[in-house]
C-alpha cells in the first residue's frame, strides 16, 4: 500500500515509470521459468487438473536430469497409457506405499555412480499421509538426497474421491457421505519432526512461488519435502475453470499457508504474507465447494478456529517464540 500511495502522489511521468518497473519485474520473474515442457499436452488429466499444473512447474524447475518416482495416484493416469507417455522425463511408477523407499535406493545408486540426477517423488496425499508415511519417514530419517512432493487434493481422487487422512473436517467424500468428522492430519508437523534440510508448502494457484521453491529445494543436498495444495474440481465439486481461484481462496482464508523452512528457519512467502495479517472468512472458501455442502455451523467455526490457531502458531515460529 505504501508503494501505491507514494506513486499516486508522484508526478504523472514518475507514476507511469513506477508501474512499468513493477510490471517489468513481474515479467522478469515469470520469464525465469523455462519454456521447455516435460509434461506434454497429451495428458489424460481431468479438465482444470491442479496436479498436472503443479507437475508442469515442478518439472520445469527440475530440468532434464531428473527421474520422477510416482506411486499409485492421479499422476499414474495423467502421464498416459502404454505405449505412449505425456512425460518427457524418465518416470518410474511404483507401488502405493513404496515411493520414498524406491527413491532412497535410486538416489543412493545414482550417487554411488557419481550422478547428480534429481530424484523426485511425486505423490498424492493418500500415498503420502496414509499408506506411504512409513516409507517417507524412513527416507527422511536416513537423509536420502531427494525431493518428496505431496500434491494434496485432500482425498483418494484417483479412485473417485474417498476420504484420506488429508481430507478436511466437514468434507463429503464417497466414504464420508455425511461429511468427515475428523480433522486433516498435520503432515507438515510430522515431516518437520524429521528436520529435513528444506521443507515448503506451495499451491497450484501460485506457480511462481512453487517454481522458486522446487528450484531452491533441488539446489540443496539431502532430504527435501514440499506439500502442495491441489484444488480438484471434480472431487471438491467446483467448476473446472476455478482451480486457480480456489487455491487463492484457500491461501487468502489462511487455510493454506505458503511458507518454507530452511534448516529449521521458517519464512512465510508470497500471498500468505498478507494472509498472516488479514484473512477472508473460511465460509468464503467452504461455501463455493460442493464437498462442504453438509458442513455444520459448529464445524465451520471449528475450521475457523483451526485457521486462527495455525496462523498464531506459525507467527510464533516466525517471531522465534516457541
Amino acid at each position: 500500500m505504501h508503494g501505491v500511495a507514494s506513486a499516486l502522489h508522484a508526478e504523472p511521468n514518475q507514476y507511469f515509470i513506477i508501474i512499468h518497473v513493477k510490471y517489468l519485474k513481474k515479467r522478469l520473474d515469470t520469464m525465469a521459468i523455462p519454456d521447455e515442457e516435460f509434461l506434454l499436452k497429451t495428458t489424460s488429466a481431468c479438465a482444470g487438473c491442479p496436479s498436472s499444473l503443479i507437475l508442469r512447474y515442478v518439472t520445469k524447475a527440475a530440468g532434464a536430469d531428473t527421474v520422477l518416482v510416482i506411486p499409485a495416484c492421479c499422476t499414474s493416469v495423467i502421464q498416459g497409457v502404454y505405449p505412449t507417455t505425456a512425460m518427457n522425463l524418465p518416470v518410474y511408477n511404483v507401488a502405493f506405499a513404496s515411493a520414498a523407499a524406491v527413491a532412497s535406493g535410486m538416489s543412493e545408486a545414482f550417487r554411488a555412480e557419481g550422478k547428480k540426477t534429481n530424484v523426485i517423488c511425486y505423490a498424492g496425499d493418500g500415498g503420502t499421509i496414509d499408506i506411504g508415511i512409513q516409507a517417507l519417514s524412513g527416507a527422511l530419517e536416513r537423509g536420502t538426497d531427494f525431493l518428496y512432493i505431496c500434491y494434496d487434493n485432500e482425498a483418494y481422487s484417483n479412485t473417485g474421491m474417498q476420504r484420506s487422512g488429508a481430507t478436511p473436517l466437514g468434507a463429503v467424500t464417497t466414504t464420508t457421505p455425511g461429511g468427515k468428522k475428523d480433522h486433516k492430519k498435520d503432515l507438515d508437523a510430522i515431516v518437520a519432526a524429521h528436520n529435513p534440510v528444506y521443507q515448503a508448502t506451495a499451491c497450484a494457484a501460485y506457480p511462481q512461488d512453487l517454481y522458486n521453491k522446487v528450484e531452491k529445494a533441488l539446489s540443496i543436498p539431502g532430504p527435501k519435502f514440499m506439500h502442495i495444495l491441489a484444488p480438484c474440481p471434480p472431487g471438491w465439486r467446483f467448476p473446472s475453470e476455478k482451480t486457480v481461484e480456489m487455491g487463492k481462496l484457500a491461501v487468502k482464508a489462511g487455510l493454506w499457508v505458503l511458507y518454507e523452512r530452511e534448516n529449521g528457519k521458517l519464512t512465510i512467502t508470497g500471498a500468505s504474507k498478507a494472509a498472516m495479517k488479514k484473512r477472508i472468512p473460511v465460509e468464503d472458501y467452504l461455501s463455493v465447494q460442493g464437498r462442504f455442502r453438509k458442513i455444520t455451523a459448529e464445524e465451520t467455526a471449528e475450521v475457523q478456529k483451526t485457521v486462527e490457531d495455525t496462523i498464531a502458531r506459525l507467527q510464533r515460529e516466525v517471531d522465534g517464540i516457541c
Binding site: 532434464a64 502421464q79 498416459g80 497409457v81 502404454y82 512425460m87 524418465p90 518416470v91 511408477n93 540426477t117
Partner: peptide, 11 residues
C-alpha cells in the same frame, strides 16, 4: 536420462 521413458505405466 538421455532416453527418457515411462516405466510401469498404465498397461
Amino acid at each position: 536420462i538421455n532416453n527418457p521413458g515411462g516405466y510401469g505405466t498404465l498397461t
